[in-house]
Structures are given as structure tokens and as C-alpha cells.
């Protein structure tokens, strides 16, 4: 089977900082890739390049065998690659319900100037989405006033309801307490499985990574230092030292507590 997402020789630097160093990457349909790496390693930048927010200095990006290097973010979304953000991006002056409804309207090309938004979208679906992210009781609250964790979920939901082929999530569980992380991932993965969405997520929590990813890619200074099965990558000594921090070990007694990758603020 051919690759869903593929990049060849991606390069990008900001001044003297190299943030993408000749990245060759590919992802197959059905994979669930965790991206790990210290802060500043270039994970978000990689996502930004793939989703058309910034252009690489050189190299190409292909989605479903089509060259999307020069395509706009919007065109890429329409092709089926959507994302959520490290800092959640919601419409702060719309209600939670409206945020979801707008995504649904966008997906179904509902752009009426006259019919009301709520009557343009399937309210049953809105209800289901709000229930699954557990924001039903807060659906009439302004999105801007939600706590960070809820904003993040809403941000992801706004992406997910577009029914993408590939969903890229930038740190879906950061800013959320450690108990809630697993809960969130469980819900998310359930939905992703249900709609057969391939996914990439940036994650700092190793438990989450080893539990939910089918593959792990480790970023070091703008390059992929290791890429493969979770066991292999997480046990790689170089990765352990440079990405996970020296103290990290899979057999440490406090394994179930949250272990954050060093350098996370």
C-alpha cells in the first residue's frame, strides 16, 4: 500500500537554527504515530510544514500521493489532512456548540446566508460530539472561557468532526492533569478507530506513547533520530539519553507516575 503522508528531503531553518534537517518521512494508512522529542526539537514546525502553515526551504510533501508542498492550508484540509494545535485554537466568542456546528457546516459546505447555523447541521451529530468530549453541559458557554484542558478537547473535536483521513494532534494532552490524560486518549482513540482515521500525535508522556502508539518517531534538533516500533525506539539508548532524559528507564519503580520528557516547561 502506498503512503498516506510522505515528505522528502524537507529542510527549513530560521536564521541559524535548523528546524527541519533533511526530513524523509512516511506514514501508512492506519498507523498511529507518536512523535516525541524535547521542546524546540522541531515537532510543531514539522506539523506546520506538513499542514501548509509554513513553507519548507526545500523538499516536498505528498498526501495520498499528491504533491501538497505548495498547497494552502485550506486545500490540504479539504484533501483530508487536519490538525489540532499545541495552543488550542477555538473561536473564543462563539459558544462550544457553535464551534462544533461551524466545523460541521464547513465539512458539509453549508454556507447559507439566511438559514440558521443550528438548522443547517445535524443536531444529533452535534449532540454526539458534545457528549463524547463531555462538554454537553457546557455547550452554551463561550469557548474562550473554558479551562485549557477543555479547550484542547474542543480544538481536537473541531478537527475530528471534519472526518479526516489523517488527524495530526500537537500535544493533545498537555495542560491536562495526569489522571485525565488517559481518559482523553481513550476517548480519542475510540473515535479515531471508529472512523478509521490515521493519526499522528505529539506526546511527552511515555506511558501514553507506549500504550496508544503503533509507531514512535523521535525528533532531535530538527531531524528524526529514531523511527519504528514503540519498544524499539523507547529502548534505544541514544533516544533514552537525548530525548527521554538520562534518568529515564522503563524498569524504574515509579513507572506508572507521569514521566515527562526533560525540557518540558
Amino acid at each position: 500500500m502506498s503512503d498516506l503522508l510522505k515528505t522528502t528531503n524537507l529542510n527549513l531553518s530560521f536564521g541559524s537554527i535548523v528546524v527541519a534537517d533533511n526530513i524523509d518521512f512516511s506514514l501508512k494508512e492506519g498507523e498511529r504515530l507518536a512523535v516525541i522529542g524535547q521542546n524546540g526539537a522541531g515537532k510543531t514546525t514539522f506539523i506546520n510544514i506538513c499542514t501548509g502553515l509554513i513553507r519548507p526551504d526545500s523538499g516536498n510533501i505528498y498526501f495520498a500521493d499528491e504533491d501538497i508542498t505548495k498547497k494552502s492550508a485550506r486545500a490540504i484540509v479539504k484533501m483530508g489532512m487536519v490538525r489540532s494545535f499545541q495552543l488550542p485554537q477555538v473561536y473564543s466568542e462563539h459558544t462550544v456548540r457553535e464551534c462544533i456546528e461551524l466545523s460541521l457546516a464547513a465539512r458539509d459546505n453549508k454556507t447559507s446566508l439566511f438559514k440558521s447555523l443550528s438548522s443547517c447541521v445535524d443536531q444529533k451529530e452535534v449532540y454526539e460530539v458534545l457528549t463524547s468530549i463531555q462538554l454537553l453541559d457546557r455547550s452554551d458557554v463561550l469557548a474562550g472561557s473554558l479551562p485549557e484542558g477543555h479547550k484542547k478537547l474542543l480544538d481536537i473535536a473541531m478537527a475530528l468532526v471534519l472526518r479526516p483521513r489523517l488527524l495530526i494532534m500537537d500535544e493533545p494532552t498537555s495542560g491536562v492533569s495526569s489522571q485525565e490524560k488517559h481518559e482523553i486518549m481513550r476517548i480519542l482513540m475510540g473515535v479515531l478507530d471508529k472512523y478509521k482515521v490515521t493519526s499522528i500525535f505529539v506526546e511527552h508522556d511515555i506511558d501514553i506513547v507506549s500504550q496508544y502508539a503503533t509507531r514512535v518517531a523521535a525528533w532531535i534538533s530538527g531531524a528524526i533520530a529514531a523511527d519504528g516500533a514503540p519498544d524499539m525506539v523507547l529502548n534505544d539508548p541514544v533516544i533514552q539519553e537525548q530525548v527521554l532524559g538520562q534518568s529515564f528507564s522503563r524498569t524504574e519503580p515509579n513507572m506508572n507516575t507521569v514521566k515527562l520528557v526533560k525540557g518540558v516547561s
Partner: peptide, 25 residues
Amino acid sequence: RFFNSPAGKFLCAIKTNETRLEYIG
């Protein structure tokens, strides 16, 4: 009616988050 329609609500979203708008297509 327009303010309550999808087009009108999209318009208001320009005020708060245009990036998000582009990223829902």
C-alpha cells in the same frame, strides 16, 4: 438572519480565530 447563519457565524469567527477557520477548510 445573516448573523445567525453559517456565513454570519463564520464572519464573526474572523474576529477571534482566522487560523482555525482556514484549518476547518
